[in-house]
């Protein structure tokens, strides 16, 4: 259970660190090729995780381009796969969040004397409701994901077995009660996290 949280937590953290600045950039600037990137991001948001798994598998497999790092069947492989799944979601929603801020509000922030950096911080703060929901959605999608982590992690006991892959295994072995218990834990985690995000969102609203 903790491995699930660690892997998905680290993956969402990295996805946020990479995705939010990129999303802000896409949300604010117009440049040639932007439409292509936005299309790719939007496609990525609906990408089947199992295909991402296959892609990461091929990349990390011993004969693959990154094979020499020996990352396949380690938690890192799962983290990489989850980052790739969550990243377009974080980028896309951040971009939408920034774009949804009224043009005049952007001018207003600058007209009160904000520096470039203070301006970006304020935009994130104003768009935070949408960005928080991006985080919730991103985290929810990767912690409950099974196909990709199974492929690249290998479901090795004590190393890469996470809640979802354990549920699959126990169900196949006929250990239904254990599978149900694990399923309940996963649900509980999802529920608690969503409660937290909802609390954060609503606190901002009131």
């Amino acid at each position: 259970m903790f491995l699930s949280l660690e892997v998905s937590g680290l993956a969402i953290l990295i996805a946020v660190i990479l995705g939010i600045p990129f999303g802000v950039f896409l949300g604010l600037h117009r440049f040639p090729g932007r439409n292509l990137i936005v299309t790719l991001v939007n496609t990525g948001m609906g990408f089947p995780p199992v295909v991402v798994g296959l892609f990461v598998f091929l990349l990390l497999a011993r004969s693959g381009p990154l094979g020499s790092f020996n990352l396949l069947y380690t938690p890192w492989a799962m983290i990489i796969a989850q980052i790739i799944i969550a990243l377009p979601l974080v980028v896309g929603v951040t971009m939408a969040g920034i774009q949804s801020i009224e043009e005049k509000l952007k001018y207003q922030i600058l007209a009160l004397g904000a520096s470039g950096f203070q301006y970006l911080l304020k935009l994130l703060k104003e768009g935070q409701l949408i960005i928080l929901s991006a985080l919730a959605a991103g985290f929810g999608s990767i912690i409950s994901e099974v196909g990709a982590v199974m492929m690249v992690g290998g479901n090795i006991k004590g190393q890469t077995r996470v809640l979802t892959t354990a549920i699959v295994l126990e169900t196949r072995q006929g250990e239904y009660s254990l599978a149900i218990a694990l399923g309940l834990i996963l649900l509980l985690i999802a529920l608690l996290l969503n409660l937290l995000f909802t609390y954060l969102q609503q606190r901002r609203l009131s």
Binding site: L105, I109, G113
Partner: peptide, 26 residues
């Protein structure tokens, strides 16, 4: 230089926090 627009364009947060913004960034 400071500017206001036709619409008040409030930021999130309280009236106090809105008014404080220009000072905080300074």
């Amino acid at each position: 230089i400071s500017m206001t627009f036709q619409e008040p364009l409030p930021f999130q947060g309280t009236v106090f926090e809105n008014v404080a913004y220009g000072l905080r960034i300074r």
